[in-house]
Design a protein around this nucleic acid. Structure first.
Lengths: 112, 112
DNA sequence: TTGACGTGCAACCACCGGTTGCGTTGAGGC
DNA sequence: GCCTCAACGCAACCGGTGGTTGCACGTCAA
């Protein structure tokens, strides 16, 4: 239970370049592989591949416009990903808290 | 600003197998490559590699005991990782909120 | 029509998660 | 003291993926 998340979504958001791309797309309200590649330290082709990944998991959607392919973030889907992210964080946080409490109890038991 | 996180830490926690390993180590209060591999669908060698990664970023520390090498989670470091995780989540959440507000304003502007 | 720009496709490379295989070393029974 | 077994480390290898270069195709504009 719990830690079981959409592994595709996670791995999509897990890549640093893809995170930066999402960031840029959000900031600029969309973009193409070419415009993104100009703001990133990777080639257009690399960006295109990433856009394919993001598209496949529904984090972006594409609108063909003439010779361009404009991508925009699917905010709802990104919100889902972010939610799952914090869910995982929360799970671990909870477990850490529990461990800490148990450890303290043991310490107290030893001393008392 | 903001999305700048320890990339090593992130990628260490980013791997699903490593997440499960941390989970198991927390649950059992430590373990060796062999004991972990028995609870995971991967070989001891794979686990050993992952433990190396986790050790390098300080998420676990190792205690040689005879012919065994016992690993335990560094809870403070894991707490840091979790914190950064939720920080990223929070950043995106905030940006999404902002975008949403702007979008609504535009909508209202169009209609009014 | 021609040139420039944006794209897609394919081949190639490097890194990484995973495996198998083998050699080493420590704990314990004979 | 030896021999065996268990845990480990190291090295070679394989498949997937992020990244690159190179090239061919469509589209917009002069």
């Amino acid at each position: 239970m719990s830690t079981t998340i959409d592994d595709d979504l996670w791995s999509a958001v897990g890549d640093p370049t893809r995170r930066r791309m999402l960031d840029l797309l959000l900031a600029d309200g969309g973009g193409t592989a070419t415009t993104l590649s100009k703001q990133l330290p990777v080639t257009r082709q690399a960006v295109a591949k990433h856009l394919g990944v993001l598209d496949r998991v529904g984090l972006v959607h594409v609108t063909p416009a003439g010779r361009e392919r404009r991508y925009e973030v699917d905010e709802a889907q990104l919100a889902r990903a972010v939610a799952q992210l914090s869910a995982v964080g929360a799970t671990w946080d909870a477990r850490l808290q529990r461990i800490k409490r148990i450890a303290e109890r043991i310490q107290r038991g030893k001393q008392g």
